[in-house]
Structure formats: C-alpha cells, structure tokens
C-alpha cells in the first residue's frame, strides 16, 4: 500500500521499503532535518531526487496534481505542527476533511469529537472554549491533538504521524501513543506510519516494520 522504491532525498541514502496493509511502521531518521525532507516527500510537496513513492499502487509524483490531492482523501496526516488552517476555528479545522469528503455534519461529528477529546484528557468546558479558538492561540500539544482528531474523524486507510511525540512530556506522549495504538485496528487493513527522528520515545513504538534511514557520510 505504501512503497518506497530507491528513493533518494538530500543526504539520505537511496532506500526501498514496502509497507503492507494492516502494518504499523516506524521510520526513523538520524536528524529532524532529514525527517522533514522525508515527510515533505511523502506528503506530495517535494519530489524526491530519484526513485518513486507509491501510495495505493499509484506513483505519487506521476499523478496530475488534482489526482494526487484526491489520493490524500484516503490518508490521515498528522503534521508535526498540526497543519491547522489559521483563519478557521479549531472546530472548523477538525470538521473540515470529514465534512468535505464524507459529508459529515457538525451535529453528526459533535459527539464523536467530544468523546475523542475526553480520551485525550480534556474536559467538557475546556473543549467548548478550545473549539472557538483560532489555531495560533493553541499550544503545540493542543494543535497536534486537534490534527489527530481531524484525521481520526475521517477513518482513513493510512495514518501518517509526523513527529507526533517530539517535544512533549513523556506521560503526554505515552497517552497520545496509546490512543493511536488503539485506533489502528479499528479499521481492518489500516497502515499506521510513524515518522520520527531517532529519539528515546520513538523506541517505544511497537512496529511491525522499522526502517532506520542514515545519511550518506
């Protein structure tokens, strides 16, 4: 479902790997910089220097832009900084992809979102206040939680977590991880891909497949 075929990025050696449906995969890089390059390539915003990336059997960069964007409807991305839209309130950000692609209305999603926030340890009144804020007023943790809930709401076939745990307290990171771990099997065949720099917490991810990418000397 995800295949890297002799992909070369900046200082990273050419690498290949295939992530089958249902797998949990962890890709680590020696530095945050390399991880950012890898993420940009996987998200369709920076073409690799060589090689090809296949998602759902389609060569990502051979597709016309419109088709490439359409492919991402099946993928839930949680970017490191949340990737929230600055002029939309948190609630509108969370609802956007589910409303856009699945036609989920605010009424249909409300209960689900509140329940998810409770899982993350956020209480009712706090969530109400949070929903009305703009992303710039949020902490990095709140941004990531909003992005995670946004992605989970679409029940995507592939979940990509970009540095989900970096810069967070150990307990908070553990809670996030438990939630993503529990979410993974809720859809049969779902791929969960964790992109992270090689840090202490990333070692705790229980992955079916681990790929460690090294830079060329």
């Amino acid at each position: 479902m995800i295949r890297f075929d002799q992909v070369t990025l900046g200082a990273l050696r050419a690498f290949s790997c295939e992530i089958p449906p249902g797998a949990v995969c962890r890709i680590t890089t020696a530095s945050e910089d390399r991880k950012n390059e890898l993420a940009a390539t996987l998200f369709g915003t920076a073409r690799p220097e060589q090689g090809r990336i296949e998602l759902f059997g389609a060569d990502l960069y051979a597709l016309p832009v419109k088709e490439r964007v359409r492919l991402f409807r099946r993928i839930g991305v949680v970017p490191e900084h949340g990737g929230l839209i600055g002029n939309l309130k948190v609630w509108e950000n969370i609802l956007l992809p589910a409303w856009y692609h699945l036609g989920k209305t605010a009424e249909q999603a409300e209960g689900e979102v509140v329940r998810m926030y409770e899982d993350f340890g956020f209480g009712g009144d706090y969530v109400k206040r949070l929903m009305g804020r703009l992303p710039d007023q949020l902490s990095i943790y709140e941004k990531r939680v909003a992005a995670l809930i946004r992605a989970m709401l679409t029940n995507a076939e592939i979940m990509i977590y970009d540095s989900l745990f970096s810069g967070l307290d150990r307990d908070v990171a553990a809670r996030l991880y438990r939630i993503t771990e529990r979410f993974h099997p809720e859809r049969p065949g779902r791929i969960s891909l964790y992109l992270c720099a090689d840090d202490a917490f990333s070692q705790r991810i229980k992955a079916d497949l681990t790929v460690a990418l090294d830079a060329e000397d």
Binding site: G44, V69, G83, G86, L96, H101
Partner: peptide
C-alpha cells in the same frame, strides 16, 4: 494578503494533505 499568508505558512500544503483541492476550496 490572506492567501499569501496561507501559502507562506504552509496552509495550502496542509489543505492538499487533507485531500482538499486548494483551487476549489
């Protein structure tokens, strides 16, 4: 200025990552 800010802050890319066509939206 709103569109330029969105582009600079990477929000147009974020929309694409959500499968939302920037031109349409």
């Amino acid at each position: 200025s709103e569109l330029a800010s969105m582009k600079i802050r990477g929000e147009a890319d974020s929309l694409r990552m959500m499968g939302v066509d920037v031109m349409d939206y």
